[in-house]
Structure formats: structure tokens, C-alpha cells
Design a protein around this nucleic acid. Structure first.
Lengths: 334, 334
DNA sequence: ATGAAAGCGCTAACAG
DNA sequence: CTGTTAGCGCTTTCAT
């Protein structure tokens, strides 16, 4: 493999000039530029990124940890993050943990070894992660999707508790009293737990009974809804409405409900969370809580990169607005 | 940041021992191991990956280029790739090109600069990419999803032409004669073009008229189906069936069709391609051509890593079986 | 089992 | 505008 040394020798200049040519062509005379360019072509030079990193101790990349690659919310937020990062001259190195706390730790360590300049992550339990991160306190971190009351680390997202409340309230407003929650495992998502807390608060405020049989936790993912829905519906007194932790699960639930011979929303209402693009394409179109995910991704990148320049350690916290989007999957209780 | 030098000094051993401890602990005496371990904790040592790469000229990572992060087929194939890579001690560095040929070039170059050991990619035009890759011929490359008759580069996928044929034939078998194709832009996907070719061949073999008005190309992505479907349906003699390039577009089309007041499959049949998980959850459940995507990802990783060890330059080609999955979105022509 | 020493390919003063 | 030089943190012979 050719190095700048080879190029320099062929072009009959110094390696410093070659380096300048690569990083700031304007700093080298036109004539020299051409000599270098031809030399590069001649020996098939390829830049070695690792050498640069080693030398500068900067990677210009931000590490991103997401819980899964199969839920498109994370695709959307990643786009926002990526767009903003690109704009500012950063790359993003993405890894997914499959909702596995152990994997999260490994991956974060790995990203750190790769010298990412900053970390953006959506993890099972941010507070726990923070502890494990203590020694890496010198790389700016921001939690995405989770908003934490008083975490010592920056975070951006919506108020999930309120989101859960609003979803449930919508159902209650429609006259539903037996409202179930199909929840993604709390241990693998604090967002899910916060949404559940909002659900609980709403039931209480409305004076609705909280039947534990109406709350089922399942792993995240479309394919895990079957059993959850079955457990909910195979009871003497099934719910008339289901609030799902996210749109993926809501869509999964609607699919299962049909297998049970139930129509949404005639027989049972369903509300999701996220408002992924797919939500407005499925039949019936899904009522859901919209998170401004693209924007969230952008903001996360801004915060991460921002923290890099102004090195005051002040964690920032950004709570964006969510919004109930009423579509066709919810209806008044007959 | 602490380095192995710091660790060595504190532990009172040589840096070589520290390095050995990191890479092959069994090569260092128990006693020394412990000294090193405590020294590491004491100074908060963190491994520097870039230095290793620079020194070994190996990253143990395979670069992956995908066209988009929002279509879950690529999420599934990536999982397969990742699982296999992990198994063999490799990481994967994923980038997405948003179906933009220019971005593909940039990203591939970027991956190469990052010294990936091998490349797995799904690009707009593999043959074109190969040309641009000529100088990087020393890193093994494999194309994923595209299967190329006689490319000088390994590839794994299904026979897309036959897939397109089978999808169309299913529709023809149901009595449809005006079969449209909602195709992802050919310039951004050779898979889409190959599927189209299968569609054409089927029409010809069945003696069905090929009406150019029945083929619309749109950008990939759920949100781009509106105009395509409108163009198809706002005609004097609209199709009675639509074959979409992929499930995402098929689902998008079904959504739009409903806006037109049409029922699938009563008024119009729809068949997709890929069999993403979502396909069996939407209503009506989608008839589609299944690709073994997870397996494809695994095989791609195997081929890439395999090529690394046995350095005979022989490109390999692997064509897996696809399968028509008939569900609810297609029906006989009334 | 351990250590000394020579790089890996680039950047960044500094000097000219 | 260009060149010299000393690293960046790790691996890897080659000795011992």
C-alpha cells in the first residue's frame, strides 16, 4: 500500500506538502498540487485513516447506539443525526444492541476504543449506563429518546410519561374503561416504563380500575406481539382498547387482533407511539403519539458536537413536544 | 489518556507484556497479569484501536453499504451479516447511501480509508461500482442482493429476474391482464430493473400487452408511492393488479389505493417483493416474493471473510431460492 | 515468560 | 510555500 512517503518521493516534495495537500490544498502551490496529484494516481495512493486518528487523537465521528435496527423510528432519528453530523463535518458510527443491556456495555466500550469523539445513545437504562461510563466522562454523551429528570448527562426526547398519559386519555375520552397496555419490556427500555407510568396516572386520575391482567410486557418487535395479544384477549373480560408501547407493536397487535376475528376499531381500539411513516399506511391507519424523531436526532447531534467545542461540562436537557395524531384505529366504545 | 506505556510503568513490566496481556493473556504469567490488571484500573486505561490498526494493518471489520436504512429488508440482511461476522470475530461498519450513486462512491472510499478488511455492498449499479473500485482490488468485495451473470466480483442474492417473473405470473394466473408495475427507480437499483425485466418477459410469454403507461418508476420509499399510484389509476383504463418492486412500496401503494376508495384485493390486486416481517401484519396481508434475506446476509459475511483467508481471487456467486408467498392482497379478477 | 527497539502512516510544530 | 523532525499508541520480531 502506498503511503504519503511514496507519493512525496515520486512527486519530489516533502511528506509535509503531501499532508497539506490532503488536508488543506489551498496551502500548497498550484504547481505542487498537480505534481502530488499525479504522483498519487501513479502509485494508487489511499489515505490511511487510522494513522490520522492516531496522530490527531480525533476521529470526527460520533458513536451511536440504538436498541434495534428493525424499528424504523431509529432509522428516522438516525437520519436526522446523520444529516446534522454530515453538515458539521462529522461521521456517525452506528451499532445496535438488540435491546440487550450486556451488549450495550460492550458496544459502548467498543465505540470508545474506536476513539469516537462523542456518544449518542438509546439504551435500556440510561442511569445504569452512566455509572458504567464514569471513566469515560471526558467524551461528551447524550441520551436520545430518554429524557431524564436529573441525569448528569445531556439528553433529548419527549416527555414519555406525558405521552403515555395522552395516549391513554384519548382512549378514556372515547369512553373506554378497560384499557390494556401492550408494553415493551421495561428492563430493556426506560421509555416503555415511563409510558406505562403515564398510563397508570391516567387510569388513576380518571378513576378507572387498574387491572394487572391488562398490562402485558413482551419483548420488542413485531413477531412478539402474538402471545401478548393472546394473553390479553383470552380472558373472561377482555379490554376494549389497547395502548401499545410503540407503533411496531401496535401494528403487530392489529395483525393479531384480526386473527382473532376482531375488527379495529369497531371491536377494539388501538393506539401506538412514535408515528413511524408506516403508521399512516396500514389499514386502519394508526392513531398514535408522534415524536419529532428526525428533529430529535438532529438535536442530539448538535448537542454532542456542541459539547465538543464549548467544554463546559454542563449537561443539557431538551424536551420536545409530542402530539396525539388521531387516525382510524380508535373509536368510541359502542 | 493512559497508554500501555503508563500501564507498563505502573505495573513495572514492559509494554510488550501489556500488549500480550491484551491480546493473548495466556502468554503472560498469572502474577504479571494481575499486576497489569490493577495498573490498568488505576490509571483508567483505554485501548486505542487506531494504534492497533496502524500497526497491524488489519481492522477485523467488514464495511457494509446499504441503500437505505428505512427499508427493513436491509435491517434483516444486516442482522444476518452481523451475526455471522461477530461469530468469526469481525465487526461491521455500516453506512447507508440513500440510493444515491454519488454517495455510494464517497462512502466506499471512506470505508476503504478506514481500512475495512472487506466490503459488502448493495449499490445502484454494481458493474459501475466495480470499475471505480478497480484500484481497491486487494480488498475482497461482495455484492449483496444483486446477482450478476458474470461480474468479476462475488455476489449473493436471488434471481431477481425470475422473481419479477414469478410475481407477474401469479397475477396472470389469477386472470389479470392489465398488470402494472410500480418500480423503484432503475438507475438507483439494478434489482428493480431485473425484476422489471422478469415482468416484461412474463407479459410477453403470456401474450399480454405491454402498456408503457402501466409502468411507473418512482424513488424508493413509502412516501413516494402517492404520485406513482395516482399516475397509474388516473387513466381511462387502469390496471387491475400492481406488482411493486418491494414490500415497502406495495404497502405504500395499498395505502394510496384505499385513499382512492379501492379495496385490495376486491378491486385491485397487489404483490410485493422481499417478504419483510411487516408484510404479514398489514391488512390485507401482503402477497409477495420472499427472499431469504437473513441467510443472504450471513452468506455475504462468509464469502467476504472467506476471501480474506484463502486468497485465490476467484469470485464466487451464490443464488438462493426465492418463493412466492400468497396471502390476502391478490385475488382472481372478477 | 519478558524486554528492547523498530516501525505502522500520518500530523504538527518549527525553521527556513 | 516547503521541508525536517518528533511523535501518536500499539504490535512484533529478536534477544535474553
Amino acid at each position: 500500500m502506498a503511503t504519503i512517503r511514496d507519493v512525496a518521493r515520486i512527486a519530489e516534495v516533502s511528506i509535509a506538502s503531501v499532508s497539506r495537500f490532503i488536508n488543506a490544498p489551498e496551502k500548497v502551490r498550484q504547481k505542487t498540487r498537480e505534481k502530488i496529484r499525479t504522483a498519487m494516481d501513479q502509485c494508487g495512493y489511499r489515505f490511511n485513516y487510522a494513522a490520522k486518528v492516531l496522530s490527531t487523537r480525533r476521529t470526527q465521528t460520533i458513536g451511536l447506539v440504538i436498541p434495534t435496527i428493525t424499528n424504523t423510528v431509529f432509522a428516522e432519528s438516525t437520519r436526522g443525526l446523520q444529516d446534522e453530523a454530515t453538515l458539521r463535518g462529522y461521521q456517525v458510527l452506528m451499532v445496535n444492541a438488540d435491546y440487550d443491556p450486556a451488549a450495550e456495555g460492550r458496544l459502548i466500550r467498543h465505540l470508545l476504543e474506536r476513539q469516537v469523539d462523542a456518544l449518542v445513545m438509546t439504551v435500556s437504562n440510561p442511569m445504569g449506563t452512566i455509572a458504567g461510563l464514569a471513566d469515560a466522562i471526558n467524551v461528551p454523551a447524550v441520551f436520545l429518546f430518554s429524557t431524564l429528570p436529573d441525569a448528569p448527562v445531556s439528553n433529548v426526547g419527549i416527555n414519555n410519561e406525558r405521552g403515555g398519559y395522552d395516549a391513554t386519555a384519548h382512549l378514556a375520552d372515547l369512553g373506554h374503561e378497560r384499557i390494556a397496555m401492550l408494553a415493551g419490556r421495561f428492563v430493556s427500555s426506560d421509555r416503555s416504563r415511563h409510558r406505562y407510568e403515564g398510563y397508570r396516572r391516567c387510569l388513576e386520575e380518571r378513576g378507572l380500575e387498574h387491572d394487572p391482567a391488562l398490562v402485558v410486557e413482551t419483548p420488542f418487535g413485531l413477531e412478539h406481539c402474538r402471545e401478548g395479544v393472546a394473553r390479553l384477549m383470552d380472558t373472561p373480560n377482555p379490554p376494549t382498547a389497547i395502548f401499545a408501547s410503540n407503533d411496531l407493536m401496535a401494528i403487530g397487535a392489529m395483525g393479531e387482533l384480526r386473527s382473532f376475528g376482531l375488527s379495529v376499531p369497531q371491536d377494539i381500539s388501538v393506539v401506538g407511539f412514535d408515528d413511524v411513516t408506516m403508521a399512516s399506511y396500514v389499514a386502519p391507519r394508526l392513531t398514535t403519539i408522534r415524536q419529532p424523531v428526525y428533529e430529535m436526532g438532529r438535536r442530539a447531534a448538535q448537542m454532542a458536537i456542541g459539547a465538543l467545542s464549548q467544554n463546559n461540562g454542563e449537561p443539557r436537557r431538551l424536551i420536545l413536544d409530542h402530539e396525539l395524531v388521531v387516525r382510524e384505529s380508535t373509536a368510541s366504545l359502542r
